[in-house]
């Protein structure tokens, strides 16, 4: 490993410890009041860390990492949380940090915990930005997502709604925040078919959205083969830190990615072995044990689902 990379890894590790301490000091989440901490992970780059839980009335969908980047002219918000309430808390955090307006709301992908806060930024001057495949993906799921949120949050879901992007990224798009450029990159189908990363040139930070899960178990909602392949490309990116869609701010890089890739490869290998042995989908899923996803949080809820998705994909090999 070159010296520069080692120094960066050490810095990332220090920052990580600082963040962990900060989170531990944060007030408990009451479900009504909205203490909403953001950490300045790099100058002008703020991140709020979501909880490793399923969406509930107590957490109001505050389960994903969201944040914003401040330029000289305006602010780009990156993901908005799992409800209007979280989006509003994020908007308030933006106002605490700067008086510059929000000009872009970027969604890294379609999942509810990343998009349902969009409504907090709608109706103003902000453009909503997403992968070119995001509008269709949201349209196909909007009713299902809204019903699911209403079930999880009850009355607290009121006002949360899908706001589709109006600025689409086919491959790559450069956004100027005034003296600070963001490079948005769309990726082939991986975690979903509408994954988008945001690279902040000023700080060398790559915001990965759910292309990287840290601590919380990855969930395959696109293509397991595609995700493994995209992971190999992400590993080659020259960055000073990454922000995952779930987990620690600036986790060790590329160790965090390697841990995710190992899990995905393990799922793919076990499913290929089951297919070779003539096992059906049902038999394969029944035999899958969440304990196989050793060390990942929420494995009970997602490991068998990942095996299901992997089977449906890999049986066509």
């Amino acid at each position: 490993m070159p010296d520069g990379l080692i120094r960066r890894a050490v810095r990332a590790g220090r920052r990580l410890m600082a963040c962990a301490a900060f989170a531990a000091l944060g007030p408990a989440w009451g479900g009504v009041a909205l203490p909403f901490d953001v950490v300045e992970a790099a100058p002008g780059l703020f991140v709020h860390t979501g909880r490793h839980e399923e969406t509930s009335q107590a957490n109001r969908g505050d389960i994903a990492n969201v944040g914003f980047i401040v330029g000289e002219r305006c602010v780009a918000v990156i993901d908005t949380g799992g409800s209007l309430a979280i989006g509003q808390a994020l908007a308030a955090a933006v106002r605490r940090a700067t008086d510059r307006p929000v000009c872009y709301v970027i969604n890294t992908h379609m999942h509810p915990d990343h998009v349902f806060g969009n409504a907090a930024f709608a109706g103003g001057a902000a453009r909503f930005v997403g992968a070119a495949s995001l509008p269709e993906a949201l349209a196909a799921r909007a009713a299902h997502y809204e019903a699911g949120l209403a079930e999880a949050l009850g009355d607290a879901a009121a006002g949360s709604r899908i706001v589709a992007p109006d600025l689409l990224v086919d491959d790559r798009l450069r956004l100027d925040l005034g003296g600070r450029a963001l490079v948005l990159q769309r990726w082939p189908t991986a975690h979903t078919n509408n994954d988008l990363t945001v690279f902040d040139e000023a700080s060398g930070t790559l915001w990965l959205g759910d292309l990287l899960f840290d601590e919380r178990i990855p969930s395959v909602d696109g293509s397991i083969k595609g995700w493994i392949a995209v992971g190999a490309r992400l590993r080659e990116q020259a960055v000073s830190r990454v922000i995952p869609g779930h987990g620690r701010i600036a986790p060790p890089w590329p160790a965090a990615l390697d841990a995710q890739s190992r899990y995905l490869q393990q799922v793919a290998a076990s499913v290929r072995a089951a297919l070779a042995a003539g096992k059906t989908l049902r038999e394969t899923v029944d035999a899958a044990n969440p304990a196989d996803a050793d060390g990942w949080l929420l494995a009970d809820a997602y490991h068998r689902r990942n095996v299901t998705a992997a089977y449906a994909e890999l049986e066509w090999e």
Partner: peptide
């Protein structure tokens, strides 16, 4: 239904359209 964001929609419509009609 399981928790989380599972929705009964296709994961990759473009790939599905490209492969339409393959049979085994």
């Amino acid at each position: 239904a399981s928790g989380g964001c599972s929705a009964p929609a296709g994961k990759d419509p473009a790939a599905a359209a490209a492969n339409l009609g393959r049979m085994r």
